[in-house]
Each structure stands twice: as structure tokens, then as C-alpha cells.
Simulated scan of single mutants.
Amino acid sequence: MTADIVAWILLLVVAAYVCGGGVDYGAGFWDLLAGGAERGKAPRRLIDHAMAPVWEVNNVWLIFVLILMWTGFPVFFQTVFTALWLPLALAAVGMVLRGAGFALRKPTRRLAERRIYGAVFAVSSLLTPFFLGAAAGGVASGRVKPGTTASADAWASTTSIVAGLLTVAATAFLGAVFLTADARRFDAHDLIGYFRVRAWISIGALVVIGAIGLAVTDEQASYVHHGLTHGIGLLLVLVAAVAVVATAWLVSRRNAGWARYTSVASVALVVAAWGFAQRPYLLPTSLTVQEAAGATASLRWMLFVALIAAVLIGPALVVLYRLDTHGVLEPLTDEDVGE
């Protein structure tokens, strides 16, 4: 029972990182596609100001994920980080380079250096979620089992590639929706339509890649596919689809801020559907939650730590996100968003 609770907390924290970090990765994705120095000047300045107050805080979720895996499910942690060390290492390098590029780009005065740092930030914002998604696809495909050695076969399958592309599309979707709302609250009226169109494009990409993913998992990840097309997993996928449609409508309205909630809900519901589709396994058909669980005492301490974190850190994060989404932390000037 304790192991099951910790497993659901792990899934909840993964969803929090996918949504919180996904917004930032998505902003970096659109930074990559913003165009040259002059054409992309206004979008990139909006991205800088929208991300600056909160971009580091999302690492809290990632650290919590690692702690839960390591302490709560050591066999799962060992198996995943042994078999999938390469995509995870590439994702980690991308996180470091992405953070460095974002931190150094803004204060740098020389145009050539700004372009280099900006390129590092933008490219890493694309590659990092792709490799994280590819690793998740390797887990979902059932190719990763206790004793599996590191090899391309563990994560370079069609399922992993589709999962990586779906992750990138999800981050682009979240980033575009949030930037549409940011453009409105910062009165950057010329950028509202700019990011609204990109939100619709990313929704189309999500639908296409998601449909391909369901077709692929039917053969390569049959256990997860069955879970996604039956029972609670299917219900969550359908609710997520409704949330995506609602987001497409809300992002076109004057108060696009509500679209942020539906976009986050849609992505979180997909992550939840994945969790329900895999149960009772952490590694489909080879390692259950109970088999992977650590010592009972460790699991109980993890529940206690999670409770303390929810009481002490949770409210602070809620306040931070609320202040940021209401434009309180760092106002934007006309010069920043002007062409």
C-alpha cells in the first residue's frame, strides 16, 4: 500500500515537471524558430521576460523525481539509469547548456556572442525534451527490463522516437499557449496573434503525432497501448482531448489566460493516462511497483518528506507561479516588445 502511494506521488511529480518544465522548453522551441536577429527580436524579448522569474524553479520537480526513484524504487532507478544512460545523459547535458545559454544571452552585449548563447539555449530546448521523451518511450515499450544493458535497442525504437517527438510537440503547445497569454498581459498586441497561430499549429502536431503513437504502440508496446485504449486510461485520454479542444477555443478569446489551465490539464491528463496504462508495472510486464519498492521504512520516510514538501514548498510555488502569471514579478516595457 505504501509503495503504491509513493508511486502515485512519483507520477504526480513527473506530471508537474512535464507541465512546468514543458512551458519553458516550449518557449525555447519557439525561440529557435523565431527567425533572424531583427525578425525574432520581439518574440525573443517576450520569451526572455516571461521565463526569467521562474525558469529555475521547475528543477525542483526534477530533483524530487530523482529522489523518489532512487529512494523509493532503487531497482527501478538502477535499471532505467543503466539501460537508458545515454539519452538521459544527453538530456542532462542539454539542461546544463540550456541554462547557461539563457543566463548568458541577456547580459551579453556583443551580437555574435548573443547569437551563440541564444542558439545553445534554443537547440537545447528542443533536444532535452526529445531525449527525455525517448527515454520514457523506452520504458513504455517494455524494452527496458531488470538486467538490461545499455544499448541503442533500449531507446532508439519507433516508440521512443514517437514519444520524443510527442514530448517536443507538447512543450511547444504549452509554450505557445502561455506566450499568447503573456503577450496579452504585457500589452504586446502584435505578438498575440503570432503565438496564437503557433498554439494552433502545435495542437495539430499533437493530434497527428498522438494518432501515430497509438498506432505504433499497438504493436511495439502492446501492454501500454491496451491501457490507453481501455478503461481509465482511455477515459483520461478522451478528457485530455476535450481539454485540448477547449484550449484551441480559449486561446482565441480575449481572456486567453484561461487557456493556460486547460493546456496544463490536457498534458497532465496524458501523463496520468500513461501511469494508469502501465499499472501495476513500473517497467511494463517485467517489474511491478511492489517488486521495485525499497525498504518499508524508506518508503514511510518518503511519504513524510513528501508531506513536509507539500506544506513548506507547495504554497511558495503556488504564490510564485501566480505572481508570475499575473505579471507582478517583472513588468515589460514598450521598448522590450517593440519591433
Rank of each mutant, 00 (worst) to 15 (best):
G72K: 10
P53V: 12
A50C: 07
F178K: 10
W30N: 02
A205M: 10
E113L: 15
A100P: 04
A221C: 03
A89P: 11
T229I: 08
A265V: 03
T82G: 11
M51P: 05
L191S: 04
I5N: 00
A309I: 13
V216M: 00
G20N: 05
T325K: 05
L86W: 14
E335Q: 05
W70S: 14
F178Y: 15
A256Q: 04
F76T: 06
V96W: 10
A42L: 10
S124E: 01
R300S: 13
A292S: 08
L62T: 08
R98H: 13
R45C: 02
A140D: 02
F304C: 12
A211I: 07
G35V: 13
V14R: 03
E335P: 01
H326T: 14
L127W: 02
M302G: 06
R114D: 09
S263D: 03
A100Y: 11
A37Y: 15
E56D: 15
V123L: 12
L174K: 03
F304D: 14
V337H: 11
H226A: 06
G26D: 03
Q278W: 01
V224A: 00
V75K: 14
M95L: 15
L84F: 06
A259T: 03
A152T: 14
V289L: 04
G257E: 10
V318L: 14
G327H: 06
E339R: 15
R44I: 11
V337I: 15
L228M: 11
L46Y: 09
L174T: 06
G210D: 00
P74E: 14
T148S: 12
H230Q: 10
A50I: 12
A112R: 14
G175T: 05
P331M: 10
F64Y: 14
A240G: 12
I308Y: 08
Q278D: 00
T167A: 13
S202D: 04
G138H: 01
R143E: 08
A3P: 01
S125N: 02
A42W: 12
W61D: 02
T71R: 14
R185S: 09
R44W: 01
Y281P: 00
A309T: 13
A135F: 07
L269Q: 04
V14N: 04
L312G: 02
A272C: 12
A306W: 12
I9K: 01
L332K: 09
G137I: 05
V239G: 09
L174I: 11
G133D: 06
A91W: 13
P331N: 07
L126S: 02
G138F: 11
G99Y: 12
L228T: 02
F130T: 06
G204P: 05
F195A: 07
A248V: 07
A310Q: 09
L317E: 09
V207H: 00
F276D: 02
W61L: 06
A272Q: 10
A134Q: 00
G275A: 03
R98P: 09
H326E: 13
D4Q: 13
S263F: 03
V120Q: 04
F81S: 07
G40H: 09
A170Y: 01
I47K: 07
A3K: 04
G40R: 10
V168E: 00
